[in-house]
Amino acid sequence: MNHIETAVEFSGLTRIFGDFTAVDQISLAVGRGEIFGFLGPNGAGKSTTIKMLCGLLTPSAGSGTVGGFNIMTEAEEIKKNIGYMSQKFSLYDDLTVEENINFFSGIYRVPREKKRERKEWVLEMAGIADRRGALTKTLSGGFKQRLALGCAILHEPPIIFLDEPTSGVDPISRRNFWRLIYAMSREGKTIFVTTHYMDEAEYCDRLALIYRGKIIAEGTPTALKQEYMERDVLEIEVEQVVDALEVLEQSGIETAIFGSVLHATVTDAGQESQRIRESLVKAGLKVVRIEKIVPSLEDVFVTLIEVS
């Protein structure tokens, strides 16, 4: 295998907790410089996988490398080459911004002459240069998130693991955060990110969908939409969404609520839309519109999960 091109790869990776298989023989390869999105609902095994790759959890079975180092035997080397940030934004709340940076800088053995420069970089990146003396607990979610990221990559690791990095952060901060991730990816860093936000998944170069410990789909966002959505998606706007859902499910049509509308997955949009309209009207519901749409990743996701 080519270590220059592959940043993370693993096969047969398994983790069993008691009689529960959290991660079940999954295999993946992530290329250098890629933004790789690891998607799945809560409890699907995303965090467990990331923890095994970072050396926080020992795999029950399987093999793999991170940055060319064996995950079973070279955890110490891996730790020098990765940055890891979890959804908890693990910082010391009772230390100041600057103290947090200094501490992690020391733990990562950032060379003395680079410490200052890296500190300023983090403060700048997180946009908190003027709050360096403030206690970390006084920062808002978005700033804390970026500071946590900064502290996790003080040592400029080539591979960055982000475990639901945007949970609990407002939309603008999320957008800014992704801008940062893009910038880092352009610098050649590999980013392995888990999320359950579908809009974020669209930002990734490649995706893997994990469900109940197994990878059920893999590919670029576009490929996933094409490959896994051979059927059409109809967006149905009705006044009584819940009643309509019931009607459609009774007539055997795969339907899910998307905000205020329904998405029905059908084999042929042209034929089915008329049939759907009729059955809804017959049930006494008022149909505002039915149209064929380009499926979103969320549609793909819902379909894939329903299939498995």
Partner: peptide, 14 residues
């Protein structure tokens, strides 16, 4: 409790 232990464990801290 606050998760920094986990954070420390992914650093090269022995």
């Amino acid at each position: 409790e606050i998760g920094t232990m986990e954070q420390l464990m992914v650093t090269p801290l022995k």
